[in-house]
């Protein structure tokens, strides 16, 4: 018995813990997994299909953070729970906020049909929209930032990281071109889209579409009766064709609006999380293509 224990213990000591990189949620996890060297594990704290806005740090999170060589997060208030979890885990891995230094959308910059709507309604995150990954150009910037940090953390494998970065950036570049081409064909009077929570501002800015939502950037805040009424009026006035729900959000508001305006719900968009593996948005590129296809089909 004692012998077995000794063997077990020495096994535990000698077993080399695989280096690991932690990301805050599934989409960053996918980006990171395209860059890291072959022997490095990528762990996402918020799994596919879970809501990062409303996540709370768990003991399992602390465990993963503690083992992390690097921690990637979006920042801009998207993961309000992460900073504390990172600090209390005693992790030695640096926490890198990928939106740092990036130009972010603010409520004032939104092209709202009703400019009198005060900024106080729409910034539960502290005034900036964190959903940058829905603009491929911004995702490419985040990928470049991630690769730089990875090269610093794993200097021995920097050539491999650079090679992977180049290949992935090429893929993202062609995705960007493809989306641009597809959306440039949409006539100007059909460029209004309704979603359940206001996550698609960057996507809209990149493709020249206007997105409106009954719910703000965060999924935490309830809409007011006025917001819903204004949306219904806008749908009637502009003859909006495209109404969508996102994964992770309560679809009741959108269903109600759909019933009242007679506009059909065009499908599910993925904003804050990937789908589970055999789903329509199993990785970042598939997610963007799925969203584009769903929106284009409804706008036709």
């Amino acid at each position: 018995m004692r012998g077995a224990l000794v063997v077990l213990f020495s096994l535990m000591l000698s077993f080399p813990a695989a280096a690991q990189v932690v990301t805050s949620f599934s989409i960053l996890g996918d980006l990171a997994s395209r860059l890291v060297p072959g022997d490095v594990r990528v762990v996402s704290l918020v799994k596919a299909g879970e809501d990062t806005h409303q996540h709370e740090g768990t003991a399992a999170d602390l465990k993963e953070l503690r083992k992390a060589r690097l921690v990637f997060a979006v920042g801009a208030g998207f993961e309000p729970w992460l900073k504390k979890a990172h600090a209390s885990s005693g992790s030695k891995g640096e926490l890198i906020l990928l939106t740092e230094g990036m130009e972010l959308r603010e409520p004032g910059h939104e092209d709202h049909a009703h400019p009198h709507q005060g900024p106080s309604h729409r910034h539960p995150h502290g005034g900036q929209d964190p959903h940058v990954w829905l603009d491929v150009a911004k995702t490419r910037a985040m990928v470049a930032r991630m690769a730089r940090a990875l090269r610093e953390a794993f200097p021995g494998q920097s050539a491999e990281i650079s090679r992977k970065e180049k290949a992935y950036d090429l893929e993202l570049n062609s995705l960007q071109e493809e989306l641009k081409k597809q959306f440039s064909a949409v006539p100007a009077d059909r460029r209004l889209v309704i979603t359940s929570h206001d996550a698609f501002g960057y996507f809209g800015a990149a493709q020249g579409l206007r997105f409106l939502a009954p719910q703000g950037w965060s999924t935490e805040v309830e809409p007011s009766a006025k917001q819903v009424a204004r949306l219904i009026r806008q749908i009637r006035e502009h003859k909006v064709k495209a109404l969508f729900v996102e994964n992770l959000t309560n679809r009741r508001s959108i269903d109600q609006i759909s019933g009242e305006t007679g506009v059909k719900v065009g499908g599910t968009l993925y904003a804050d999380s990937l789908s589970d593996s055999p789903g329509p948005a199993a990785d970042y590129v598939q997610m963007m293509k799925h969203n584009a296809r769903t929106i284009l089909d409804a706008l036709k």
Partner: peptide, 8 residues
């Protein structure tokens, strides 16, 4: 909630 733009 309608006139004052607050949750209902």
């Amino acid at each position: 909630s309608f006139h004052g733009e607050v949750p209902s």
